[in-house]
Design a protein around this nucleic acid. Structure first.
Length: 194
DNA sequence: GCCAACGTTGGC
DNA sequence: GCCAACGTTGGC
C-alpha cells in the first residue's frame, strides 16, 4: 500500500503526518518517507555521485484500483502519475522500514519500474526516474505471472531473475533491482508476451 | 473476499 | 530476547 500521494512538487504542507500512519516510529524521525522530489539540497549535494558504478535500479509498487484505508483512497496508478503536475509525485506513505531505507538510498535520475499491485492485473506498467517522475509506459505490460515464470526458470538456470526481490522479498513495496534484472526486464518489451 | 506470508508489537 | 497475537501486503 505504499502509495505515492498526489501532491504538487514543491507544494507546501508536505508534512501533515500521514493520516494513515498510525504510529510513526520515532526512529525515522523527520520526513521518514523520503520525498524524492525536486532536488532537495540535501540529497543532491551530499549524495556523492562518485559511486556511479553502484548502478541502482528500482521497482516501486502502487495500487491502481481504489481501496479505502481509514477513509483514504490508496489508488495511484501510472495514469495518475502521468496526470500529476510535471508528471511527478511525492512517494510518501511507505511504512515499511526497509522500503523507506531504499527510498533514502535512491539518487536522482535513477530508473525505476512502476508496478501495479493488489489489482486485477499485477505487473510492471511503466518506467519512472527518481524524482519521482513518469518517463514512459512499457512497450507492453509485463505481468507478474510472466516475471514469475522467468524467476522460476532462472532459479534452475542461473538466469538474471533468479533472485528477483519481487519474489524473494515478497512484501517489500520499494525494492532494488540489479542492472542485470533491470536490463532483462527491459528486453522483455521486445518479445512476445507468453 | 480469502488467506498465506511475513512484519510488528508487547508481555513475559 | 523469545514468541504468540495481531496487523498488513498482495496474489488469487
Amino acid at each position: 500500500m505504499p502509495r505515492p500521494r498526489k501532491r504538487l512538487t514543491g507544494a507546501a504542507g508536505p508534512d501533515k503526518k500521514e493520516l494513515s500512519e498510525k504510529r510513526i516510529k520515532t526512529k525515522n524521525s523527520e520526513n521518514a518517507s523520503a520525498k524524492l522530489e525536486s532536488p532537495s539540497p540535501q540529497m543532491t549535494s551530499t549524495s556523492k555521485n562518485c559511486d556511479k558504478n553502484v548502478s541502482n535500479y528500482w521497482l516501486m509498487k502502487s495500487e491502481p484500483e481504489s481501496r479505502l484505508e481509514k477513509g483514504v483512497d490508496m489508488k495511484f496508478s501510472i495514469e495518475d502519475l502521468k496526470a500529476q503536475p510535471k508528471q511527478t509525485a511525492c512517494w510518501d506513505g511507505v511504512r515499511n522500514y526497509q522500503a523507506r531505507n531504499f527510498l533514502k538510498a535512491m539518487k536522482l535520475e535513477e530508473e525505476a519500474f512502476f508496478y501495479h499491485s493488489n489489482c486485477k492485473q499485477p505487473g510492471i506498467v511503466g518506467l519512472m526516474k527518481v524524482d519521482v517522475q513518469f518517463v514512459r509506459m512499457m512497450k507492453r505490460f509485463i505481468s507478474l505471472g510472466e516475471l514469475k515464470a522467468y524467476h522460476q526458470a532462472h532459479k534452475a538456470t542461473g538466469g538474471p531473475l533468479k533472485s528477483m526481490a519481487l519474489f524473494t522479498r515478497q512484501r517489500l513495496s520499494v525494492q532494488p533491482l540489479s542492472r542485470e534484472e533491470f536490463d532483462f526486464i527491459l528486453s522483455l518489451e521486445e518479445t512476445e508476451s507468453s
